[in-house]
Amino acid sequence: MLNPLDIIKKKRAEAINRIIGKGYFSTIRVYVGMASCEIAAGSKEVMAVFEKAIKQGLNDVYLSQKGCSGRCNLEPTVEVVEENKIPVKYGLVNKDRAKTIIDKHIKKGQVIEEWTIQ
């Protein structure tokens, strides 16, 4: 019989495989804050913008919801993460900002400095 440590090792490996299967290794990963404070600030709308863009053909992007990192006054927050680049953290994202983030940052690689959390 397997010992708990072996079981958990296996489970972890399986979980990581499933996450990779969902496209974790895409060039860009986007995280949208989805705790009730973020939602109150409008993060569902923001999520919808990214979901729509992906449906309409934006590819090589892994989109995920995440909890709240505790920056109440800058919510909703969105992170754009690329391997070997400093993860970019955007604050006060709304529908329009989300669209701009897709057009400028995700598609053209231009970070929109004014909206980043420093």
Binding site: I8, K11, R12, A15, I16, R18, I19, G33, M34, A35, S64, Q65, K66, G67, C68, S69, G70, T77
Partner: peptide, 20 residues
């Protein structure tokens, strides 16, 4: 893990060494 993982995904939690 707050603000890092998807709270509705146990896979995410396992991937950050959850339940270890």
């Amino acid at each position: 893990n707050c603000g890092i993982i998807d709270p509705e995904s146990i896979d995410d939690y396992l991937s950050v060494r959850g339940y270890e």
